[in-house]
């Protein structure tokens, strides 16, 4: 066969047919995106914009709602509570989450798997169920107060519901998996040989932690921290149930403006504040870590 075809490349004459511009290959067309896009525009983007608009149109055009929001000590205290609780929840989640993720990453698979099971179970359990459980556990006659008294650590029950302590405990419970799972992924991707190399270079365990492991994990920690902080800022259910009416947080305030006070202007204004802070923090996260931190991957 080879002998027959031994010939130079035959050069075809003329320029051949020119089919013009390359045709579009069968690829996912824009049309497929349209149903989802319509749904989100009509039932998400537009209603949210309309709500925000009401903050400057109701009851009359102007920024009176914002002035009222900033001018009142009550509202400022709510803002303060919201940021305080979010910050504490974030710090505690990181302080617990990092060692737990670290441990999970180095434990043998057989031991780590059931711990993951517990993490996933707590994450998938109905939110109200979890919050209810904490209301029961933390109440004056609850298990925790009884145990502490039984152990002789305290004389009288500690107030742990209807205050910010309860909110912080309950929220940390909810946020913890959101720190542990991504951090686990980050630590698993670090080659253990790098830490061995650090030891061979003469680093003590503490130095290796401070100079090698923590810097490698830091971007993941920062991304996780921002996510937890932002989620906490807008949380509604847990603060409403564990914090009681005296310790309101921002999301609750928005709901109250709309549901109890039927004051759409103030509701819109508070929503805008929450929205702006949330989006600003996400923009910061995108700027610092790219899209990788946004739940994907």
């Amino acid at each position: 066969m080879a002998g027959v075809t031994r010939q130079a490349a035959a050069i075809g004459g003329g320029t051949g047919l020119a089919p013009g511009r390359p045709r579009r290959l069968p690829a996912g067309p824009f049309a497929l995106v349209v149903p989802g896009l319509l749904l989100l525009v009509v039932f998400f983007a537009l209603p949210v914009l309309a709500l925000l608009l009401r903050s400057v149109t109701e009851p009359e055009p102007g920024f009176a709602n914002y002035a009222a929001l900033i001018g009142s000590g009550t509202y400022l205290k709510i803002f303060f509570n919201t940021f305080l609780v979010s910050a504490v929840v974030t710090l505690v989640s990181l302080a617990i989450g990092f060692p737990v993720a670290w441990t999970l990453a180095i434990l043998p698979q057989g031991v780590a798997a059931p711990i993951f099971g517990v993490l996933i179970l707590s994450m998938w359990t109905n939110l109200l169920t979890r919050t209810y459980a904490w209301m029961v556990l933390l109440q004056r006659t609850g298990v925790i107060n009884k145990s502490l008294i039984g152990l002789g650590l305290i004389d009288a029950p500690l107030p742990m519901v209807n205050n910010l302590t309860g909110v912080t405990i309950g929220m940390t419970y909810i946020m913890l998996p959101f720190v542990v799972l991504p951090l686990y992924g980050v630590i698993r991707r670090i080659d253990p040989a790098i830490l061995q190399a650090a030891a061979l270079c003469g680093a003590s365990r503490f130095q290796a932690l401070r100079l090698v492991l923590l810097p490698l994990v830091a971007p993941g920690m920062a991304a996780g921290a921002l996510m937890v902080f932002v989620m906490s800022l807008g949380y509604f259910v847990t603060p409403a149930l564990l914090g009681g009416t005296a310790n309101m947080m921002l999301a609750e305030l928005i709901a109250q403006f709309v549901q109890s006070l039927v004051n759409w202007g103030m509701g819109g204004a508070a929503a805008l504040v929450l929205l702006v802070v949330t989006l600003a923090l996400y923009a910061l996260q995108l700027r610092l870590f790219g899209t990788a931190g946004l739940g994907g991957r």
Partner: peptide, 18 residues
Amino acid sequence: GLDVPTAGDIRLEGRSLL
């Protein structure tokens, strides 16, 4: 046929495939 030429032709036994 997974890509399309900007110009030119391909023929199998004299028939264009494009």
